[in-house]
Nucleic acid binder design. Structure first.
Length: 488
RNA sequence: GCCCCCGUAGCUCAGCUGGUUAGAGCUGCAGGCUUUUAACCUGUGAGUCGUCGGUUCGAAUCCGACCGGGGGCACCA
């Protein structure tokens, strides 16, 4: 090699690729037999003392994350998904050709190695390589080995680089994977059946949100991406699946924020013969159990805002919560004009009493609900699928759960009176016609299902991304979504 | 949709009251070193300063528009 070679980082790697090929090395072989997980190797030799050598030979494979040359010896760090181990490459142990070809390796390459376990003078467990093979050449340079990758945009757009460079990112998505699997286990163990209902729906419903619209060519008609699984899951309950859940993506055509992504993961479960007291008791146990399973503790949350997720969680009615934080009693201010005046805001067209209550709550109360809290008994205007409260007029049997100032779940005693449901739909349809784009369209087939007869039922929606935020201690939802929505 | 902040080498950053050929560390390349671990030592290469336009003798630096990102507001879960 002379100085006149192109010094471009990509070109360098391609030249190494060619030199390896010319030396008879296949840079992209098909596999590596007899590999052990690095974590297993390190735990096998945990007690090894500095300078101690063994005769145990291991085969490991992974990505080269560090390299320290030493003339007639070299150290490589190799990482697989569960651990990292140091390799000692010595000129007097390796085949001369293999030792020479080490020069053609780069940070980021995948190699497979065989070597005996030793502990170096500094006490680091290492494999003294007797042979190595290239498993895949990396043709692009990895992010800075010390500073990692910090640019937020690159981290989200090229999440693979973020995962390579940042231990914390790998941890977060491990938390996410364990959270999802332990939620499924929790529900499965209690006899819930997981189902899959349509993502493409002829009519959207089950939440107050604007949908994405798409087109089916063969049928030549519009479909909506679901905003919730609610209505289909209740039809499952009508059909006799008494404990049912679905864990999957919903899509809402709303803005993007640290708490919102247009596609997000939602768990909904429904249990026949249960009510919102039962669902609240279940949720606090589920979240607490999941935290214990995933983190080994029920304490979680962001730095400086750690909370204890163990039950029982605090319970407060919406009215009390609002009164405590704002001094406004929503049972006294029962007109939109009166409430707007009490809040000191301009009354805009199309903003009803319910929306005012909602905005009052979001502004004044929600950010302060750091400790796990159930807020109960919502106005009927905001809850078209919830059953009226058994004793309190004007409110429904509904709660929302908050942790760290973020809503993580929503639940009600489900409305199962088809005639009442029809009236609620009519109300929603009127608001939709009146310009409220988040109101519900009328769904006759759902009404027919209720007319078939649905047992008293409790249902819950749990935002998985937001729960993972809490468990992983992140302040942005985008940190727990592998590939968050981006422009272009 | 509105407001504020940001965009300099593959990565992490400096330079920004306008003024020689835009700097550093890591990465890369050449060389040295048989126990290092952010290895070290010597030498060396690498940039449409987000894009386009404007002001100016002169723009990474000042102004405008656009693109992309972050945060906040609005809206939602």
């Amino acid at each position: 090699m002379t100085d006149s070679q192109p010094s471009d980082l990509l070109a360098e790697r391609r030249e190494k690729l060619e030199r390896l090929r010319q030396a008879g090395v296949e840079p992209f072989p098909h596999g590596f037999e007899g590999r052990e997980e690095i974590a297993d190797v390190t735990s096998t030799h945990q007690g090894l003392e500095a300078g101690q050598e063994t005769d145990r030979v291991h085969r490991v494979a992974g990505r080269i994350t560090g390299r320290r040359g030493h003339g007639k010896a070299a150290f490589l760090d190799v990482r697989d998904s569960g651990g990292t181990i140091q390799l000692l490459m010595k000129a007097d142990v390796l085949d001369p050709k293999q030792f020479e070809l080490l020069d053609e390796l780069d940070l980021g390459d995948f190699i497979g190695v065989e070597g005996r376990a030793i502990a170096t003078r500094r006490g680091e467990l290492s494999l003294e390589a007797s042979g190595w093979e290239l498993l895949a050449k990396s043709l692009r340079p990895p992010p800075d080995k010390f500073h990692g990758l910090e640019d937020t945009e690159t981290r989200y757009r090229r999440r693979e680089l973020d995962l390579i460079a940042n231990e914390e990112t790998r941890r977060i998505f491990q938390v996410r994977a364990r959270t999802v699997s332990s939620i499924r286990r929790w529900l499965d163990d209690r006899g819930f059946a997981e189902v899959e209902t349509p993502v493409l729906q002829p009519l959207y419903g089950g939440a107050l949100a604007r949908p994405f619209t798409t087109h089916h060519n063969a049928l030549d008609r519009e479909f909506y991406l679901r905003i919730a699984t609610e209505l289909y899951l209740k039809r499952c309950v009508v059909g006799g699946i008494e404990k049912v859940y679905e864990l999957g993506k919903d899509f809402r055509n709303e803005g993007i924020s640290p708490k919102h992504n247009p596609e997000f993961t939602m768990l909904e479960w429904y249990e026949a013969y249960a009510d919102y007291e039962k669902t609240a008791a279940d949720l606090e146990v589920l979240v607490s159990d999941v935290a214990e399973a995933v983190l080994g503790t029920t304490r979680a949350g962001r730095e400086g805002q750690e909370v204890d997720l163990s039950p029982p969680w605090k319970r407060i009615t919406l009215r009390e919560a609002i009164q405590a934080e704002s001094g406004i009693d929503i049972e006294s201010e029962t007109t939109r004009e009166g409430l707007a005046a009490a809040m000191g805001v301009e009354l805009e067209d199309g903003v009803g009493w319910g929306k005012l209550v909602d905005s009052l709550f979001s502004k004044e109360v929600e950010p302060k609900l750091v400790e796990p809290t159930f807020v109960t008994d919502y106005p009927v205007e905001l809850s078209p699928f919830a059953k009226a409260h058994r004793t309190r007029p004007g409110v429904v049997e509904r709660w929302e759960a908050f942790v760290g100032g973020v809503e993580i779940a929503n639940s009600f005693t489900e409305l199962n009176d088809p005639d009442e449901q029809r009236r609620r739909f009519e109300q929603q349809a009127a608001e939709l016609a009146g310009g409220d784009e988040e109101a519900q369209p009328y769904d006759e087939s759902f009404i027919e299902a209720l007319e078939q007869g649905m047992p008293p039922t409790g249902g819950v929606g749990l935002g998985i991304d937001r729960l993972v935020m809490t468990l992983a201690g992140t302040s942005s939802l985008r940190e727990v979504v592998l590939f968050p929505a981006m422009r272009d």
